[in-house]
């Protein structure tokens, strides 16, 4: 094994957090199989897995127990949202002495057997690492990264490693984002704090949503989060455009976010010039 050693109490130095919401059984079976591959991979660090279920009931408890006997499953009792749920797990992880990294895992992904090892290896490569994302596979996200330094403008939250350093300096996700865009915001805050935000190309996660059926709820949620992001970073035009789209999609009225005037270091990293890509596309 490599990477961070066990904590003083003997626990793993890496925590994987999985937030559930009414997931299909087959999806969790595939995820658990891939987690098993990652444990067995040569050079893989020891890691713990924590499940937090945002579903309306506890039906998934039995599924998780079957797929991963002895799993650490908690039922949140409410749909907290993506960022808030991970924040709970992250707070617990970094409240445990010796835990160096927390990895957010989307339950609808399948981790390549080298995913966790490669994420941790990339994180340990530099002391200023803030975030490291797994490469989306097979349809890679078109945002750019430097193939030499692996620096990227922002990291996707699909499979995202957060270092203790990042958590200490910038905190977790902004809980005003219920879902979507919270990863972009965390990335920008990490970069503004002088931390390195990178891709680990060997760490692949099979995650494909392009052909997923269009859902009006999802589309509205994306617009609402994007509007919040625009407001938080002071881009009035972007915010207005997203709010207009939200209304056109039949979104319920809500108190429009107040346009902030971000600090210069934050404004410098924000990129609203490329629509929802938040960076120049490679293709």
């Amino acid at each position: 094994m490599s990477g961070p050693g066990p904590t003083a109490a003997g626990g793993p130095g890496v925590w994987l957090g999985i937030v559930l919401y009414r997931n299909p059984e087959r999806e969790l079976e595939r995820l658990c199989t891939s987690l098993a591959w990652n444990r067995e991979a040569p050079g893989a660090p020891a890691f713990g897995v924590k499940w937090l279920d945002n579903s309306p009931d506890e039906r998934l408890r039995a599924v998780v127990a079957r797929c991963m006997p002895g799993a650490d499953y908690r039922f949140s009792g409410a749909n907290l949202g993506f960022g808030a749920a991970h924040n709970r797990l992250m707070a617990e992880a970094f409240g445990t002495p010796g835990v160096r990294h927390y990895v957010c895992i989307n339950p609808d992904g399948v981790l390549h057997p080298d995913c966790v090892r490669a994420l941790v290896a990339e994180a340990e490569r530099r002391p200023d690492t803030g975030l490291v994302e797994a490469r989306l596979f097979p349809d890679e996200h078109p945002k750019p990264y430097d193939p030499r330094t692996r620096e990227t403008p922002w990291c996707s939250g699909c499979v995202l490693l957060v270092t203790r350093e990042a958590y200490t300096r910038v905190g977790g996700f902004d809980e005003r984002f219920f879902m979507y865009c919270e990863d972009v915001d965390l990335s920008w805050r990490a970069r503004a704090a002088g931390l390195s935000v990178r891709v680990a190309p060997e760490a692949r996660v099979h995650h494909y949503t392009v052909t997923r059926e269009l859902s009006a709820t999802r589309e509205r949620m994306v617009r609402r989060s994007a509007a919040l992001l625009g407001a938080k970073y002071g881009d009035a035009a972007f915010t207005r455009a997203r709010l207009r789209e939200y209304a056109e999609l039949g979104g319920e009225p809500f108190a429009a976010p107040e346009l902030a005037k971000p600090e210069r270091r934050l404004a410098r990293v924000a990129d609203f010039g490329h629509h929802f890509d938040f960076a120049r596309r490679r293709w």
């Binding site: 078109p142 193939p147 190309p201 060997e202 490679r282 293709w283």
Partner: peptide
């Protein structure tokens, strides 16, 4: 694509 260290592709474009 172009190969990178480790033989994995760095994708430059998709047409």
């Amino acid at each position: 694509w172009v190969p990178t260290v480790g033989g994995l592709p760095y994708v430059r474009a998709k047409i």
